[in-house]
């Protein structure tokens, strides 16, 4: 049903180790290189943010569990380059210096500031009206991609099939479940939904605490649509 990345609320992890702002931005030189190579390769335009997130999630459970953060990035980047047809595995082994048809798209140093400053907004104009209103009770659906078995979704399993309250409407945003699989942006209204800790967990730390998630309209049902 789920993958290892969907770890919210799981048991068994040890303490969090704060750095109180003392840790360098990149603890190792290769961390910075891994981030930079990934961003630069992304600007070739052969995948979107949702495709790249899904590539990291598709690392095997053994790899996902044992790789450090930037190892996940760099390994998923290799997988993306192969799966999106940019390089073959053999290309990666041989590393032959031959021009690539996408070379004209390579991010140049003089463009870096502009590319990073431009970002990639995901809000889109839609003609449909939001189905849910602020203050309305909703219920989350099952945390699974409805287009692709094992596909990308942004509803965590700990928050599936739970009641919550709409606290904000964020406009319409690209739907990751579709966009991660080449099925188009399919923008939908996005809401911030408050779920009470006591509704989510058998043993909440404090009954009044809450978790707020940003959820797309198709992740939600109206309270009236939920069978008693």
């Amino acid at each position: 049903m789920s993958r290892l990345h969907d770890m919210g609320a799981r048991f068994g992890d040890g303490p969090v180790v704060p750095d109180f702002g003392q840790e360098p931005v990149f603890k190792e030189d290769w961390h910075g290189r891994a981030l930079a190579v990934t961003l630069a390769a992304g600007s070739l335009g052969q995948w979107n943010l949702d495709v790249s997130r899904h590539a990291r999630e598709c690392l095997s459970p053994v790899d996902y569990g044992s790789f450090s953060y930037y190892e996940k990035w760099i390994s998923a980047l290799a997988d993306l380059l192969a799966n999106q047809g940019v390089l073959t595995s053999q290309d990666m082994i041989d590393a032959v210096a031959t021009p690539h048809p996408l070379a004209h798209r390579a991010m140049r140093s003089e463009n870096v500031a502009a590319v990073l400053a431009a970002g990639g907004p995901t809000d889109r104009k839609v003609t449909s009206k939001p189905k849910f209103q602020i203050g309305e009770t909703v219920c989350t659906k099952r945390a699974e991609n409805r287009f692709v078995s094992g596909g990308h979704t942004r509803l965590p399993q700990y928050a599936e099939r739970s009641f919550g309250t709409i606290v904000a409407h964020r406009g319409a945003h690209v739907l990751p479940d579709s966009n991660a699989h080449g099925l188009g942006e399919a923008p939908e209204h996005l809401y911030s939904v408050a779920l009470l800790a006591k509704d989510l967990f058998e043993h909440p730390e404090h009954p009044e605490d809450e978790v707020i998630l940003d959820l797309w309209e198709s992740y939600l049902k109206g309270a009236d649509d939920v069978k008693a």
Partner: peptide, 9 residues
């Protein structure tokens, strides 16, 4: 490999 292919600067 990306540098040799001209895909990154």
């Amino acid at each position: 490999v990306l540098t040799r292919k001209g895909l990154i600067d």
